[in-house]
Design a protein around this nucleic acid. Structure first.
Lengths: 127, 127
DNA sequence: CATTTGTTACGATTATTTTCGTAAGCAATA
DNA sequence: TATTGCTTACGAAAATAATCGTAACAAATG
């Protein structure tokens, strides 16, 4: 089971993916140590989850040495898009504009960030 | 169990909330009929779900007549914010700006919509 | 009045997700 | 060599979510 397109990671799987996206490569222990900061589950729980994710193709691993080394097998960008799509559909009646307005209106954005958004907006308007 | 702040609706519950947000008030049958369009589950499944949601405070109901009339008890806006917050945290490293850019970049927006966003952006820049 | 139809209540089953306990193996080290 | 520590594998329990079957009842209808 090499690649896993359109497989939706569960909540816990997402937490692990976040660690892997951040670290690029990691052992079970490293992942578990990182998660431990704000969650408490046993080591074997993390291990099992990674094994399941491997089955699904969400991660790949190098098992050439005793201690396996894991790596994400789905990109952060694709996963973001997947979840965004789902969210737009289920909470914003399919309108990504509504979602954008919501996010803009209800969260803090620095001057620099607003400018960054303005740039992108300008580009889009040119089309 | 009157109000249910910070209770996260499940996938199925969200589907039902969508119907209720749209219809304002509805009987179990109406909800079920609507869902039937793109999902197939038995009538009692929808009923049970609505009963559970009532327990949790996600919906309220008028049971003065035999056929109960349900109504959402959490607003679409609050729910949107909840999910957005979760998403920003779990997939965009806490940056709502990144989320906005993603949504702007990867989805279609009409000229009118872009203008609408520009308006909001202008307002934000004034602060 | 008897029957059919539509409704709620609710226990129970099934499916999915999360968690953990235990076994087995290997490698470092006492 | 024996022990200790860290690792994977894996079955199974616990927790959560979704589904349905059946009973009970009331209102409409024949």
């Amino acid at each position: 089971m090499a690649t896993a397109k359109n497989i939706k990671p569960t909540e816990s799987e997402l937490e692990i993916l976040r660690v892997l996206w951040d670290k690029e490569k990691a052992t079970v222990r490293e992942v578990h140590e990182t998660l431990s900061a704000h969650k408490d589950a046993g080591y074997t729980t993390t291990l099992k989850l990674l094994q399941i994710m491997f089955e699904k193709g969400l991660v790949k691993r190098d098992d050439s040495s005793k201690t396996h080394i894991y790596q994400a097998n789905v990109s952060k960008e694709i996963t973001q898009q997947q979840f965004m799509g789902k969210m737009i559909h289920s909470l914003f009646s399919g309108s990504s504009t509504q979602l954008v307005m919501q996010a803009l209106g209800h969260h803090e954005h620095s001057k620099e960030e607003l400018e960054e958004i303005q740039q992108l907006l300008n580009n889009l308007k040119k089309q």
